[in-house]
Nucleic acid binder design. Sequence first.
DNA 1: TACATATGTCAAGCATACTTTCCATAAGTA
DNA 2: TACTTATGGAAAGTATGCTTGACATATGTA
Lengths: 67, 67
Amino acid sequence: MKNRLEEIRKQRGLKQEELAAALEVSRQTIGSLENGRYNPSIILAYKIAHYFQMKVEEIFIYEEEKS
Amino acid sequence: MKNRLEEIRKQRGLKQEELAAALEVSRQTIGSLENGRYNPSIILAYKIAHYFQMKVEEIFIYEEEKS
DNA sequence: TACATATGTCAAGCATACTTTCCATAAGTA
DNA sequence: TACTTATGGAAAGTATGCTTGACATATGTA
């Protein structure tokens, strides 16, 4: 699972901390997602997509056969 | 988070066990998703959508403010 | 009745998502 | 230099997703 979080966040001129606050998660969670340390829960993925007014699949890109 | 898993599975004439095998998860996981005991990981949500050739958001319906 | 099939659900255990706390590093500025 | 801001990331703890194994119930059929 790849994601375009860092790209989209920067497009919007947001700091990790600001995005984290808006989504009610920790700054470390945002950093960990951006750097691929883990995948978001489906709930968080939806919150992110909703916040950016995008589709989940526009932000999180599934790559077959990888966990 | 609601989902249309049971409805879609039955439309396709599949048993829980058959769907589970196709997705490489346990039958209990499918049952638990259908009965709302927990939400899928984003990986499993994508596998399910891919299997049914649908969008994630057509199957899993986000309800604001609920975990 | 007896047996098979499909589903519901629990319990224990492991893996992963997310938290808080902490420290490091890089870039900008006084 | 010294200080601030933004980010990276480790460590330990909690919550949730998923597993296997077990048992229950409902339905259909011999």
